[in-house]
Structure formats: C-alpha cells, structure tokens
Design a protein around this nucleic acid. Structure first.
Ligand SMILES: [Mn+2]
Ligand SMILES: [Mn+2]
Ligand SMILES: [Mn+2]
Ligand SMILES: [Mn+2]
Lengths: 218, 218
DNA sequence: ATAAAAGTTTAGATTAATCTAAAAAATATT
DNA sequence: AATATTTTTTAGATTAATCTAAACTTTTAT
C-alpha cells in the first residue's frame, strides 16, 4: 500500500501532529526527516492524493482518519519490536531505535499478532511510550513533565520524551529508568535545574534540559 | 552497502550458482526473480561493478569471494528469522518464507548476533536448510534425494528442496516433517512414484515430483 | 502600507529500478 | 556453411525519491 518512504513521512507527520491541533508545516517535516522542503512538498502531494493527509497549499497538512489508522499501525509495530529487542534479546534501551526504524516496515499482520502475543500484550515500550493495540487504541496514563513536578512529592518515572542514545545513556548512568521512584527536593531558580533524589538516594542535580525530557506520574 | 533489490539479486545468483560450477545465465535470474532479462542485465552490471560478481557478456555471471560472503550473510539472516518465526512465534513451516524474505534485509549485526544466541545457535532452519554461522561456515550433512533412496532402508527426513506453501502443506498432511522416519517399500516403474512407510505406518504413495523434493539421510 | 524576510512551491536534474522494442551475439538446425 | 532460433544486450521510456535554484506566498518589520 505505502512504500517504506511514504510510511516514514506519514509516521513523522502523525508524531508532529500529536498533541496540538495546528497543521504540520513543510519545514517541520523536512527538519524531522533531514530532507529538503521541496522533497517534502512532493511527498505531501502523494500522501494527500492517497488521502492519508489533507493539504492546504502554504498552510500545512493534517492527518486524516485513514492516515491516523495507518500511522498508529506503524507506531505499534515500532514499539512492539523495541519491546522484543529489550525483553527478549537483551538490548539496552538506547540501542533499539534504529533497528525498530527498519523493523516497523515489515508487512505481515500475522507476524505482529504473534509477536504481540509472544510479548504478553505489552502496553508500553522500553521508553515508556504507549503501544497502540491492534485497533489503534492507546492506553494513555496521565503523566507530568519532571520539570513541572511538585517539590517533595513521591513520583515514578513513566517515560522519556527523547530517545537519543546520549540521553538514554546519561539516564542509565544517573540511575533513571522506567519505574524508578523520584522526589524533587529543590528547584534552582537560576537555571531551572532540579535537585532530585533517585530511589531515595542522596539528591543530585538534573539539568532543566534533562528534566524536560523525563515524564513522571504521581 | 547494497540496496534491498541488489541483495535479492545477489542472493538469487548465489543460490543458482550453488552446486554446479557453471556460470549463472541472465534468463535464469530473470525467471527466478520474475523480472525481465533487460532488467537483469542492468543489475548484473551494477553488481559486477561493485565486485560482488564477475560478468562475461553473453556468458553469464559468477559470484566472487566478496559476493559469496555477502550472500551467505543474507541466507543466514533469512534462515535465522525463519527459525525464530517457527520456534518462538509458532508459525507453521509453510508460513515463514515471505516474511523472512523481508526480514533478511534488516541491517544490524548486533540484532543477528543476539537473535542467534536467543535461538541457541541453530544449525538448520525449519525446512532443514543449513544456517551459515557468523563466519559464513555451513555445516552440511550428507543427504540423499528421496527419489534415489534405496528400498527398505531406514531413512530420516532432513530437508525439503521446495519451500512453497502448497508443497509444505501437502507434506504436513501426509505426515512428513523434518526428523520423521521413512522407509521406501517399492518404486513404481511406470511413473516413478514411491510407496513409502512414514513413521512405520501403512505405506502410501508419494509422486516422483514430491520424492524429488524431499531430502533424507540414512 | 511597503519592503524585507521567511517559508513554500515549482521547474528542472539526477539516480535506482523497472519495462518494451530493437539490435546484436551465440547456439541450433538444416 | 548458411540460415533460423534463442538468448542477451542496448536504446529509449517511465516512476519513485531526491536535490538545487528560481519563483511565488505569507509573515514580519519598518
Ligand atoms: Mn522507519
Ligand atoms: Mn520507543
Ligand atoms: Mn528478500
Ligand atoms: Mn527455509
């Protein structure tokens, strides 16, 4: 139905549209995919012609119902594969993204059904991101950005917003992973960094930058 | 290094060159890949330019050392994935080929290392085909085509030569799978079909066509 | 309200993979 | 040995994905 490349564009557009209801702009897509605006314009035309997105010239694109369904199936595959790599093959959580980027394009509904079953129908991937079920339904927990958390309240890490190796390796180093308990002890006015106790250990500083990329629940 | 398409051509050329030492001809490749001779000629030029094969105009191609190494790594991936699908995800042996055809192109040496370990370093895939190790070494058992087997000798099925669903489903139906014991009771002169006892049960007829596609050992 | 800047689209090329039809070479047949 | 047949290659198109440069629209700043 869609080529490998078209799928990557659709998934990216879907992710850029998540949350806000503004249209997704050509340059945003180009930046995400490390490609050029002219290339994006061409692809946009193709995807809108196929009715995965709607497109208003100069004003950006929106994902259609059909587009969202397909995008969610790609996201589902990506996250199930990431889960497989970590749970079954003992990958580190910072090693899985690039491989899943390829595996998400494998076409076989039976494979995904059976993989899901083999993994015990997981609802979140190794980064805490929700895995859509086979109908595209996402079980979303209420989560807060660590940066905005209340002082002295017991929190649990539930996801990361950034899947880069450097960030994930940094988190591993300071002892942060999904499910770990945190308490914010102090917010430093000057640079927005936080003093955080991880698993009730001696508080340590986490930069504002990092705190913006850690999601927690109460 | 090689595109998805180039890998498919290289693997096909490698398989066509297995056994014999004759050059592989343009039309053979075209037939295997359901493509046209003109397309094959172009691809041959590309692969020989990259030194995966040598090419003598009008006389066909041969796989180089470098080409064989790469082809074996694709075959290794294909067969490891097939093994995974059957052993871990409970696919039937006739359902795995098309998915493995896609999975064999995933690029990640780490993934294959870990998959191999997860599967316990298997030496044969669900069809009895040998899985090259990470150095490309194949552990090949001596095997006989059932058609040529000696009458009344105890045999064990070790591989199939044809991976088509229809053939594999037929085999499942008559109770033939890898490891099953067979005894050829009689060879029918007229059409070359064989009367075979499967797992010591009442002998039944197997066509010459089928007997040419079953490999056994003593 | 203009003019400048920023963002987007169009025009024109390029590369990979494919095809059909024509030309060329090798093989088989008389 | 000459001719016919088969096989292979070349020539010329097409489609997908990409790029640069130029043209056009929208937004921002004077
Ligand atoms: Mn991808
Ligand atoms: Mn993830
Ligand atoms: Mn393949
Ligand atoms: Mn196989």
């Amino acid at each position: 139905m869609l080529s490998y490349t078209e799928e990557n564009y659709l998934k990216t557009i879907y992710h850029l549209s998540e949350g806000g209801q503004k249209s997704v702009l050509t340059n945003e897509i180009a930046a995400s995919l490390l490609t050029k605006a002219a290339t994006v314009t061409d692809m946009i035309k193709k995807l809108s012609q196929k009715e995965f997105i709607t497109y208003e010239k100069y004003y950006g694109v929106n994902v259609t119902k059909k587009g969202k369904t397909h995008a969610l199936s790609i996201v589902r595959k990506h996250r199930l594969w990431e889960t497989f790599l970590v749970e079954k093959l003992n990958f580190m959580w910072d090693e899985v993204h690039d491989v899943a980027e390829q595996l998400e394009h494998i076409q076989s509904p039976l494979l995904i059904e059976k993989l899901d079953e083999f993994l015990g129908y997981p609802t979140a991937d190794p980064h805490g991101h929700p895995i859509p079920d086979k109908h595209g339904k996402i079980k979303q927990e209420k989560q807060i950005v660590l940066k905005d958390a209340i002082i002295d309240k017991a929190l649990t890490v539930c996801a990361v917003r950034n899947g880069s190796s450097s960030f994930l390796q940094y988190l591993s180093k300071i002892g942060v992973s999904i499910g770990v308990s945190l308490i914010v002890k102090e917010r430093i006015e000057f640079d927005g960094s936080l003093e955080v106790s991880i698993q009730n250990k001696k508080p340590q500083l986490i930069s504002r930058e990092a705190a913006e990329n850690i999601l927690v629940k109460e």
